[in-house]
Design a protein around this nucleic acid. Structure first.
Length: 111
DNA sequence: TGCTTGACCGACG
DNA sequence: ACGTCGGCCAAGC
């Protein structure tokens, strides 16, 4: 399939998310130069070529939840990958204030 | 062309 | 804290 410019931009933005942090679809879309296109981020992440490494698991929705059915393989995989990076889940949600990535002032995780 | 589909978001009750 | 609803707009058919 053809690789679109928009997808490449989303992938690029996604790669900037540091380990142990998460970003929302809308945030990534903005970062890639597509404000008001959160769904484009979802589309792009769904079509990542196998060969290129993109930390797609660090992208979650604005509610701090994973955008997959809780009983799906994808859900389990993404949750495992995040937990392996130290991202904590509480009641099926990630605390965005704590783990959310801020491209500007990269405020750390404080207790 | 035109219509449907989203790995979404924010507001509202 | 949940579900619903309307808005959003590129992709894909």
């Amino acid at each position: 399939m053809k690789i679109h410019e928009s997808c490449a931009a989303i992938w690029k933005a996604t790669k900037k998310i540091p380990r142990g942090r998460v970003a929302t679809y809308g945030q990534i879309a903005r970062e890639a130069g597509f404000p008001n296109h959160p769904r484009l981020a979802g589309y792009s992440l769904k079509h990542i070529p196998d060969n290129m490494k993109v930390p797609w698991h660090r992208v979650i929705n604005a509610q701090g939840k994973l955008s997959f059915p809780v009983d799906s393989e994808h859900y389990a995989l993404q949750k495992n990958l995040l937990e392996a990076e130290g991202v904590l889940f509480l009641r099926g949600k990630v605390d965005l204030v704590r783990y959310g990535w801020r491209s500007k002032s990269d405020a750390p995780i404080l207790d």
